[in-house]
């Protein structure tokens, strides 16, 4: 029987971590409460004590915890990132997820037993990039940016000894992760430098009657009429005018959902499937983990079909209530 990919679920808090473990995640990924991870949002993430408890909880149930330290270490403050890597190692994380080449070199040299994963923020879209990180830093796994088609993912897998993790569900980055600074162009803060995209401190929703304007640092990203589903004012998901035509010029507020192609992902040898959403609530984590667990367990069978109740469950928690196969499917491009 084919080995099922690991189900890798997000947790922005201890209750979310427990929800992921209790609902069938094989692995949970988390971050510290600082700028070293790409979901550096107020009120989110783990103190050392919470993380120690979370790791205990997961490992006692034979699950893994990965710590994302996946922003780029800013010159003059590199020590903060080194300290986070050191803490991850001493807390007993099953692996750390890194993007910065200098940090990969540091972790590889300082903690030779610590498993390293190349973060999606590392923008490794091809096997040459992944193999270089493997040769230089001994990475065990690479997370692919959400820009490749299914045959392209397969081509990467066939040309590298490194495990490949792909995204399975959650809000969609339309840009290659790590290669997008739209957020800092508007606000001065980006995923690379501050671990944030379209950060909350710059977001204003102003309601004018039944119309809601979504602004980022004063820039109008979208306007929602009465009853129209809203989205977070992420730059790439706003409505803008191009040659007089107003539409989602870059991307609609949609969620990625790979349920329909799970058997294909298993066949080509994807090692792990990741759920996006460390910024989401334990309720979201529980719902999505439960659903993907059921789907993955069924996906090894020859007569696999997406059950309507799975789609309904995921539909409800999706941004914009639309789902897409994203770049996996050629027409999207």
């Amino acid at each position: 029987m084919t080995r099922l990919p690991q189900l890798v679920c997000p947790a922005g808090s201890l209750p979310a971590l427990k929800a992921a473990v209790d609902n069938g995640a094989d692995t949970v990924y988390v971050g510290f409460k600082n700028a070293t991870n790409a979901r550096n949002f107020a009120g989110l993430n783990f103190t050392d004590a919470q993380l120690a408890e979370g790791i205990r909880y997961a490992q006692s149930k034979k699950r893994e915890v990965l710590i994302a330290i996946n922003t780029y270490a800013q010159a003059g403050r590199v020590q903060e990132w080194h300290a986070s890597i050191d803490r991850a190692a001493s807390l007993g994380a099953d692996a750390v997820i890194l993007a910065d080449l200098g940090l990969l070199a540091y972790a590889h040299k300082t903690h030779p037993d610590l498993k390293l994963h190349l973060s999606v923020q590392g923008s490794a879209t091809n096997f040459e990039a992944i193999n270089l990180a493997h040769e230089a830093f001994g990475i065990r796994r690479a997370v692919l940016p959400r820009v490749l088609t299914l045959p392209q993912v397969e081509y990467v897998i066939n040309n590298t000894p490194v495990e490949i993790e792909t995204f399975g569900f959650g809000s969609l980055c339309v840009m290659a992760e790590g290669r997008c600074i739209l957020s800092s162009y508007a606000t001065g803060q980006s995923p690379n430098t501050h671990g944030v995209c379209s950060p909350a401190a710059f977001v204003r929703w102003d309601n004018q009657g039944k119309t809601m304007n979504a602004r980022l640092n004063g820039i109008l990203i979208d306007r929602f009429e009465d009853g129209e589903p809203a989205g977070y004012p992420t730059l790439c998901k706003g409505r803008f005018a191009v040659l007089g035509e107003t539409y989602y010029a870059l991307e609609e507020p949609v969620s990625l959902n790979v349920l329909a192609i799970l058997p294909e992902l298993i066949r080509i040898g994807v090692a792990a499937i990741k759920v996006e959403g460390r910024q989401r609530s334990p309720a979201y984590v529980a719902e999505v983990t439960r659903t993907l667990r059921a789907a993955l367990d069924a996906a090894g069978n020859a007569d696999f079909q997406v059950k309507p109740q799975w789609s309904t469950a995921l539909d409800k928690v999706s941004e914009g209530h639309q789902q897409t196969l994203g770049a996996y499917s050629r027409p999207w491009k």
Binding site: Y72, A73, V78, D100, L101, G102, G178
Partner: peptide, 13 residues
């Protein structure tokens, strides 16, 4: 686009 934000990364490259 190689994301060089610190001296160590530049040294490695």
């Amino acid at each position: 686009h190689l994301n060089i934000y610190n001296g160590q990364t530049l040294d490695w490259l």
